[in-house]
Design a protein around this nucleic acid. Structure first.
Lengths: 140, 140
DNA sequence: TGACCTGGTCACTTTCAGGTGACGGAGGAG
DNA sequence: CTCCTCCGTCACCTGAAAGTGACCAGGTCA
């Protein structure tokens, strides 16, 4: 009963903050932003439109397949735009849309957080790992 | 002008923070924030400390193992704190640290973006999928 | 003729986050 | 004596994400 009430309270709070409308949407956004390449591509494309091969060469270690897939997903969400030039040899450029820029702002906030706190983070992890590996019987 | 200039500055900064500095730290933060349960747990713990079993019951469908792992990672990063009460039966509470709250702010910004733009996002995806499935030969 | 460029796609393989179910010890309850 | 609760750990399994290398069309150059 009491933990039922607690659960209710807590769920309503979570509901208000994160899951107000549709948890799936949050998940999908996080999946897109959190996957291995999207953020890097957004960062690359930010300084101007780039071609497929340019991205392939510039992104450190991305494969053709993953570049295609990631760009398709980004394009599907309307975050980047694919522009085809009917030339010979064919040319395709990708650019961030205005909609994409509205997302990159909060994403940048996380990136900045990561940059600002990487020392703290590393220290925390080191401390935790040392404590776990070296002195696990802190209560014994 | 300020908007454009701001976007430019901000996104150039994204470039720097994302790619030039230390991609691993950003990656690890994104992995933590983007995984399946961390955000939910942060959201649950945001309204107050909770016990292991409480989280298990409240989080929709999490397994014991994943709850343990996720909490350990969160604790390792110093984002949540584990408090043991030497009682019978044993009681363990988890709570968000101040450090954790500094992260949940930008994360909530993304959640808010997702909530604000879910209609646009859905429309974009629908349009893209329809165009792809229904009229793929737009150039032929 | 054939080797090269571009912008991809396809099939196969690897990797790993996440899920499942069992075990554990310390202490009540029946 | 057995079973239950609380807070996990351990070994194993699976499905999805990511990587790999071959392949393709369509043209140019030599």
């Amino acid at each position: 009963m009491s933990h039922q009430a607690e659960a209710d309270r807590v769920l309503r709070s979570l509901d208000r903050t994160c899951l107000d409308h549709d948890p799936d949407v949050l998940r999908s956004v996080l999946d897109r932003v959190g996957d291995k390449w999207s953020l890097i591509l957004i960062g690359l494309l930010d300084s101007g439109p780039m071609r497929f091969t340019g991205l392939l060469r510039t992104a450190p270690g991305i494969s053709r397949r993953m570049l295609t897939l990631t760009l398709r997903n980004l394009e599907r969400d309307g975050l980047v735009k694919r522009v085809i030039f009917p030339e010979i040899p064919p040319r395709v450029e990708y650019e961030v849309t205005p909609f994409g820029r509205t997302l990159s702002e909060p994403v940048l906030a996380i990136a900045r957080w990561a940059a600002d706190n990487q020392d703290t983070l590393r220290a925390n992890r080191r401390a935790f790992d040392q404590a776990a590996g070296h002195d696990p019987d802190d209560l014994g």
